[in-house]
Amino acid sequence: MENEVMYDYMLVIHPDAQTLQDVSIFRHLISEELGMDQAAFSQAHIALFRSEFPERYEADFTGMLEEMVQEQSAFTIYTSRIDHCRQGERHMFYVNVANPKPVEELHRKILRTFELKPGTFRPHMALVRSVNTQQFNRLAPYFTNKMFVRSFHCHSFSLLRKPAGGQQYELVREFRFGRDNASEHPLFNHAA
Results as ranks from 00 to 15, higher is better:
residue 15 P to Y: 00
residue 17 A to G: 02
residue 17 A to Q: 05
residue 18 Q to G: 03
residue 19 T to V: 08
residue 20 L to V: 10
residue 20 L to I: 03
residue 21 Q to A: 09
residue 21 Q to T: 10
residue 21 Q to D: 15
residue 21 Q to M: 01
residue 22 D to I: 05
residue 22 D to K: 10
residue 23 V to G: 00
residue 24 S to I: 00
residue 26 F to C: 08
residue 27 R to S: 08
residue 28 H to P: 00
residue 28 H to R: 14
residue 29 L to M: 11
residue 30 I to E: 05
residue 30 I to C: 00
residue 30 I to K: 00
residue 31 S to L: 13
residue 31 S to A: 15
residue 32 E to G: 09
residue 32 E to C: 11
residue 35 G to S: 07
residue 36 M to N: 02
residue 36 M to F: 15
residue 36 M to G: 03
residue 37 D to G: 08
residue 40 A to T: 01
residue 40 A to L: 05
residue 40 A to C: 10
residue 41 F to I: 01
residue 42 S to I: 04
residue 43 Q to Y: 00
residue 43 Q to I: 08
residue 43 Q to P: 12
residue 46 I to A: 05
residue 47 A to G: 11
residue 48 L to C: 07
residue 48 L to M: 11
residue 50 R to H: 15
residue 51 S to K: 14
residue 55 E to R: 13
residue 55 E to I: 14
residue 56 R to W: 14
residue 56 R to G: 07
residue 57 Y to V: 11
residue 59 A to K: 12
residue 60 D to V: 05
residue 60 D to K: 08
residue 61 F to K: 07
residue 63 G to N: 14
residue 65 L to P: 01
residue 66 E to G: 13
residue 68 M to C: 01
residue 69 V to F: 09
residue 71 E to K: 15
residue 71 E to Y: 04
residue 72 Q to W: 06
residue 74 A to M: 04
residue 78 Y to C: 06
residue 78 Y to D: 04
residue 79 T to M: 11
residue 80 S to H: 15
residue 80 S to C: 03
residue 82 I to H: 01
residue 84 H to Q: 05
residue 84 H to K: 12
residue 86 R to Q: 13
residue 87 Q to N: 02
residue 87 Q to W: 13
residue 89 E to Q: 13
residue 89 E to G: 02
residue 93 F to E: 08
residue 94 Y to R: 06
residue 95 V to L: 12
residue 96 N to M: 05
residue 96 N to I: 00
residue 97 V to K: 04
residue 101 K to Y: 06
residue 102 P to L: 11
residue 102 P to C: 15
residue 103 V to D: 06
residue 104 E to V: 15
residue 104 E to A: 08
residue 104 E to F: 03
residue 104 E to G: 07
residue 105 E to C: 10
residue 106 L to V: 05
residue 107 H to T: 11
residue 109 K to R: 15
residue 109 K to N: 12
residue 110 I to P: 11
residue 111 L to M: 10
residue 112 R to G: 06
residue 112 R to W: 00
residue 114 F to E: 03
residue 115 E to M: 11
residue 117 K to D: 12
residue 117 K to F: 11
residue 117 K to I: 10
residue 118 P to E: 15
residue 119 G to Q: 09
residue 119 G to Y: 02
residue 119 G to K: 15
residue 120 T to L: 07
residue 120 T to V: 07
residue 125 M to K: 13
residue 126 A to W: 06
residue 127 L to F: 13
residue 127 L to E: 01
residue 129 R to V: 09
residue 129 R to H: 01
residue 130 S to M: 13
residue 130 S to P: 02
residue 130 S to F: 12
residue 132 N to A: 06
residue 133 T to E: 14
residue 134 Q to K: 14
residue 134 Q to I: 13
residue 135 Q to V: 08
residue 135 Q to E: 14
residue 136 F to R: 00
residue 137 N to C: 04
residue 138 R to I: 10
residue 138 R to D: 09
residue 141 P to D: 14
residue 144 T to M: 03
residue 145 N to K: 12
residue 146 K to H: 04
residue 146 K to G: 02
residue 147 M to P: 03
residue 148 F to Q: 09
residue 150 R to L: 01
residue 151 S to Y: 05
residue 152 F to I: 00
